[in-house]
Design a protein around this nucleic acid. Structure first.
Lengths: 214, 214
DNA sequence: ACCTGAACACCGTTCAAGT
DNA sequence: ACCTGAACACCGTTCAAGT
């Protein structure tokens, strides 16, 4: 009665895929509660195992969180890369990536927040390196979109000027990240909140104009 | 020995200004740890009172956090208003406010994060209304700067078009908030992180160009 | 290798009681 | 009105033990 039904299908002692089960349950909890304040004991309860079983798969709560954040950045990279690949040119690629980015954040509020928070939290455990790599890879996808536009002569940036590219990417990222966070934190007035797609589209396009005229 | 020295100066039982003491100690803890995971009991220990004394002044931890966030938005409003008032015109006002905004966030990382997080957390307690008012007031300061520029004809926006003003403010806010958060979350590459002032200035000015040419 | 159960040192919050 | 102390139902983490 105090064990989830799904557990009945699994062997009683050796779970088989507890790591994945915990991982998925953690994501579910994070999205339900919009934060990562869930307890490891609650997580174990949901997975139908003892409160200590998680420690067989994750050294600590913060290491689990870092692993979740890493997976989040990988998902985001994938989403952005697909948006870019499907676009016919630099302008379309930029808007598609920008809109996909904000859409991802709004679709996974707790997870998105965790991704950014945990990069500055878990500066100690072994899960940090893959996290940083995943975050860097995501940024790389954005950089490539800007770089393509610069090389094509569509954006007014010298593709060889690394500092200029870096700055342009940071500007776009700031705009998209800020907009996403303001949405998640319910900081938008009714006007903007009632037409999210329109607002997102306009702000992404305004940033694109900045790239073209820089 | 387990009580802070400052406590010796105060009356033993009735503290006198415990609310303020707790408030200040909470801010200190938040800035030390870059989060608000401190325990109410630790807070009470720092103030030299029993672990329940805080409940005489705050209904719960989340109400204390909401009060802190409210004060944070008031500080931010003040900082922005002063930056705007000291500027000779709309362009200078915009860059001064933008740079002051990011500087505030970087100077108070834990507090800044809390301000934005608690607006979406404490949707239940009585401290929510003042919080929302303070957040709205801060946004108002930004809006006024954009509105002034529009009225002066310096920014390419119709000052009577409320939706356009709203959108322009949201764009600027997203950019500044995103940049601030990326800084706090250590998401910037070495290049940007090593010259923060320069990067901030460039990104604020790029956003200003967007306003002028809109 | 993977999991359990008892144990430790914590929490937030409540409640009855003191000043 | 403001504060204390005991109590309750939790935590994360460790450790010895089971399968």
């Amino acid at each position: 009665m105090d064990r989830p039904a799904a557990e009945a299908e699994r062997p009683a002692y050796h779970h088989g895929d507890l790591r994945r089960t915990l991982f998925d349950a953690a994501i579910a909890l994070i999205e339900e509660q919009q934060n990562w304040d869930f307890s490891l004991r609650e997580l174990a309860r949901r997975a139908g195992v003892s409160h200590n079983a998680p420690y067989s798969h994750f050294a600590s709560k913060s290491e689990l969180l870092a692993a979740l954040a890493t997976a989040g950045f990988e998902m985001l990279s994938e989403v952005m890369a697909q948006a870019a690949a499907a676009a016919p040119g630099p302008d379309a690629a930029y808007t598609a990536v920008g809109e996909a980015y904000v859409r991802f954040g709004r679709a996974h509020p707790g997870h998105y927040r965790l991704m950014f928070r945990s990069a500055s939290i878990s500066m100690d455990n072994s899960a940090t390196e893959p996290l940083m790599r995943a975050a860097h890879a995501a940024k790389r996808v954005m950089s490539n979109v800007v770089l393509e536009g610069a090389r094509a002569g569509v954006f007014a940036i010298d593709p060889e000027d690394q500092a200029a590219i870096e700055l342009a990417v940071l500007g776009c990222w700031s705009s998209g990240h800020g907009l996403t966070m303001l949405f998640l934190d319910k900081m938008l007035g009714e006007v903007s909140a009632s037409q999210p797609e329109r607002v997102i589209s306009k702000i992404v396009r305004a940033e694109l104009e900045g790239l073209r005229r820089r």
